[in-house]
Design a protein around this nucleic acid. Sequence first.
DNA 1: CGAGTCCGTAAGCTTCGGCTTACACTCCGG
DNA 2: CCGGAGTGTAAGCCGAAGCTTACGGACTCG
Lengths: 106, 106
Amino acid sequence: MEAALRAIAEPRRRAILRLVRDHELPAGEIAAHFDVSRPAISQHLGVLKDCGLVAERRVGTRRLYRMRPEALAELRAHLDDFWGEGLARLKETVEAKEESRGRRGA
Amino acid sequence: MEAALRAIAEPRRRAILRLVRDHELPAGEIAAHFDVSRPAISQHLGVLKDCGLVAERRVGTRRLYRMRPEALAELRAHLDDFWGEGLARLKETVEAKEESRGRRGA
DNA sequence: CGAGTCCGTAAGCTTCGGCTTACACTCCGG
DNA sequence: CCGGAGTGTAAGCCGAAGCTTACGGACTCG
């Protein structure tokens, strides 16, 4: 979790993640979306891959990357483990105020 | 969100947050829980306060800090806004696969 | 094989951030 | 008014991290 949290804290990496959230993309095309050097993006991809936030698939000379939603879900679960009780208490407080995507089935 | 995310990425600050999650504590007592200098903790508290993750209440010469769960909830909401669609899709996938700790949700 | 493509890696620079020591400020009791 | 308690703030040090250029490795096609 530690690594994933630090990875997400970097704006450029968040942008990359959003980029490969829905469809996988080759490293070059990802890099084309930014105005920094391609190796910089490659390093970011390495960080994202090391902490499991993205998956890599090699096809020919290309490397396709895609987000790994499981990692993000796990990260959020850890957050809930650490500070979830406080959030739960808060939830009761703002229950009437927040209606966007609540899940209070019971 | 940016600031809060970067703040949370720091282990020591997460520890501080857990410390003031349930009950508020004076800065000195917070610092006593760590083996770094007190000013270091003070700076951490400043960061946490600047991004709204903790609230400060002054009583006498002391400053009591407490976590602000709303900030954390807002942060999580932003995460869901950015990558929530992927998470939603994942949820359906692993819903049947992950039952090990089924003590959460309602 | 050889050239070209696509990409990661290495080395170096520079900025950011956490830690420390020294100092200044506020508040309270005598 | 004065001293001590409780904290924030300033200046500086140093390791971490992102960026760049240069290079090397894997794969494809002729």
